[in-house]
Amino acid sequence: MSINATLIGQMITFTLLVWFTMKYIWPPLFESLEQRKKKIAEGLAAAEKGHEEILLAEKKAKGILVQAKEESATIVNSAQKRANEIVEESKETAKKEGERLIFAAKAQIEQELQQAKEGLRKEISALALSAAEQILGAEIDRTKHQEILSKVSNQL
């Protein structure tokens, strides 16, 4: 076991290995490590940001939902109100229409009654006149006593 020229050979080999490692091995591998670290950090930051954005969007969606619910409730309310109004209105109209019909019917009845009365009156006056003519004979002149006759018939 002695120290000899092998030592020098080994030192040369060692120097070459260290030089090669320093020049061609360490820098690219270390660089890729650093870059990956950066990438991971960026990815994590992006994930964090995305998470926050989701929370924000959820909040927003909830707000919109609440608003929509409120709006729909208002719409339903106003629709109900309007429907009630329409019902009321139609009730009113129907009532009025009914009254009008009743009134018209009554008027017609009245008119027909009047006409019937008129007819009857005329017939009675004619009958009375003919009866009087028959009783009185020629004493009564239709033209002369027209005034009296119409007075009588009006009293009927």
Binding site: S2, N4, A5, T6, Q10, T13, L16, L17, T21
Partner: peptide
């Protein structure tokens, strides 16, 4: 000036393995 051929060979060979793998 004695050279230990086995030492020189195996250490150079293993250095080569190291360098080859990492390169």
């Amino acid at each position: 000036w004695t050279l230990h051929l086995d030492t020189l060979f195996f250490s150079a060979f293993l250095g080569g393995v190291f360098v080859w793998f990492f390169k």
